Amino acid sequence: MNSDTNEGKWKQIKGEFKEKFGQLTDNEKTEAQGSFDKLVGEIQEKYGESKEAIQKEVRSW
């Protein structure tokens, strides 16, 4: 894949994330960047879903 294709896929993933988890603030998303567990924890706190369900959802992206 070339960089344009990768960039397009990344934008799609970010858009899906924003649609599903729009209650998270930009600061929370930035703080969680690079830390899968922290991201899952932030989502779990906001939405009350199980850790396993969130991990499965995020990994499916």
Rank of each mutant, 00 (worst) to 15 (best):
K51V: 11
F17G: 06
A32T: 02
I54W: 05
I43H: 09
T25L: 03
I13A: 15
N6P: 02
N2C: 12
N27C: 05
Q33S: 14
K29Q: 07
W61H: 09
V58K: 03
N27Y: 09
L24N: 05
G22T: 03
G8A: 15
T25V: 02
I43N: 02
G48S: 08
N6L: 14
N6D: 10
Q33Y: 07
E16M: 12
T30D: 04
Q55I: 11
G41L: 06
Y47V: 13
K14T: 00
Y47D: 02
K18E: 11
Q12C: 09
A53E: 11
S3M: 04
S3N: 10
A32I: 03
Q55H: 02
G48T: 01
K11G: 13
K11H: 11
S3P: 00
G15M: 04
N27Q: 13
S35E: 11
K29A: 07
K51P: 03
G15T: 05
L24P: 02
K18G: 05
E45P: 00
V58M: 08
E42G: 03
D26W: 00
K9H: 07
K51A: 15
K51G: 10
D4H: 07
F21Y: 15
Q44A: 15
Q23E: 13
K14D: 02
D4C: 07
Q44R: 08
E31S: 10
G15D: 04
F21N: 10
D26C: 06
L39C: 14
D4M: 12
E42P: 00
G15Y: 00
D37V: 10
S35A: 14
Y47I: 14
S60C: 11
K29D: 02
E52R: 06
Q44D: 00
W10N: 02
E45C: 08
K9M: 13
G15A: 13
G41M: 07
K51Y: 11
N2Q: 01
S50I: 09
K38N: 08
F21T: 08
K9R: 07
E57K: 05
S3V: 12
Y47S: 13
D37T: 10
G34Q: 01
I13W: 05
V58Q: 06
F36S: 07
L39W: 00
D37L: 13
F36D: 02
K29F: 02
E42V: 04
R59K: 14
W10L: 01
D26Q: 11
G41K: 10
D4Y: 08
D4N: 12
K20H: 06
K20S: 14
K18H: 09
G41S: 15
T5A: 15
G48H: 00
K56F: 10
E49M: 15
N27S: 14
G41A: 15
E28N: 03
M1Y: 06
E49N: 10
K14F: 04
G48E: 04
L39A: 15
E42W: 00
S60H: 04
E57T: 12
N6F: 10
E16G: 14
F21V: 06
F17D: 10
K29P: 02
T25M: 08
Q55E: 15
S35F: 12
E57G: 05
D37Q: 08
E42S: 14
Q23T: 12
F36A: 06
K46Q: 14
T25D: 01
A32V: 03
S50L: 09
W10M: 03
K14H: 03
G34M: 00
S3Q: 05
M1I: 08
W10A: 03
